[in-house]
Amino acid sequence: MVREDLRAASDHLRAAAVAATDPSLEERLYDQSDQLAELATADSGPDHGRLARITHALDELADAVDEDDAESNIADARNSVESYRETVEGV
């Protein structure tokens, strides 16, 4: 089962990584993108706690980038994660 919102978030972070000029931020964005891609196809989806940590990491990344394209893609990724989180039972 593919979780489309998480796959979209991963794609947005890949685009943000391409737009980033700081090599350290580029690597962090790729790493977060990889995590979301794995979660998109895992046997079971992430729980609210994991999604909260991802959202927090995306907020930190958005604060750290200077490029508008990167920031916009991170915001889109965050929106995709939040859309997925609305479908998770609990809390």
Rank of each mutant, 00 (worst) to 15 (best):
D76P: 05
A77H: 00
E71W: 09
P46T: 06
E71R: 10
D43G: 15
A9H: 01
G90R: 12
V2T: 15
L36D: 02
T41E: 09
R53Q: 14
E60V: 05
D11E: 13
D22F: 15
R78Y: 01
G90S: 13
D66S: 13
T87C: 10
L13W: 02
E82F: 06
E86K: 09
A9C: 10
L58W: 03
E38V: 12
R85C: 02
A42Q: 06
A64Y: 08
Y84G: 03
A70K: 10
R85P: 03
A64F: 09
V88L: 10
A42W: 07
D66K: 14
V91P: 11
L61W: 06
D59A: 12
A42C: 06
A62Y: 05
D5E: 11
L39Y: 10
E60D: 05
E60P: 01
L13F: 04
L39S: 03
T87H: 11
G45V: 03
L36C: 09
L61M: 08
D11K: 07
N73F: 00
S10M: 09
L36M: 12
A70I: 09
L36E: 08
R7V: 07
E89H: 10
A77Q: 00
Q35H: 05
A37H: 08
I74P: 06
Y84W: 15
S10P: 10
E4S: 14
V18L: 08
H12M: 00
Y30M: 13
R53K: 13
R85H: 04
A17G: 14
E86F: 01
E86T: 01
